[in-house]
């Protein structure tokens, strides 16, 4: 067990935890997206640490990180699209007020 790997994994876990807290506790759509970005960042650190300390000879590990970066970009694009549409229709992106889908 190497300390470097452990440090990286703990960083990933901490980012994941902070992200979960943010995504659940914030009431604004953009702030929730920030939480999701942090969760994805946590995943990214873990994948890169696994590549570096377990399989440095296999570039597929790095490719996973690239895919996560893509996912982040997609999340931003779609999230902001939804935010603009909602702001135009309702005048705010507060999630407390978004209860139309509640059964």
């Amino acid at each position: 067990m190497s300390i470097e790997l452990l440090l990286a994994l703990i960083t990933g876990a901490a980012l994941f935890g902070v992200g979960i807290y943010g995504a659940l506790s914030q009431t604004n759509l953009v702030m929730i997206m920030m939480g999701v970005e942090l969760i994805l960042a946590g995943a990214m650190v873990n994948l890169l640490a696994f590549w570096r300390y377990l399989h440095p000879d296999n570039p597929a590990g790095q490719m996973f990180v690239l895919i996560i970066m893509t996912v982040m970009a997609i999340e931003m694009a779609v999230g902001f699209g939804v935010a603009i549409a909602r702001f135009r229709a309702k005048g705010s992106v507060e999630m407390e007020e978004a209860t139309e889908l509640k059964g």
Binding site: A14, F16, G17, Y21, G22
Partner: peptide, 13 residues
Amino acid sequence: SLGAGIVAFVAAV
């Protein structure tokens, strides 16, 4: 949310 964050962190660690 604080609880969920801490649980997630501890579990991952």
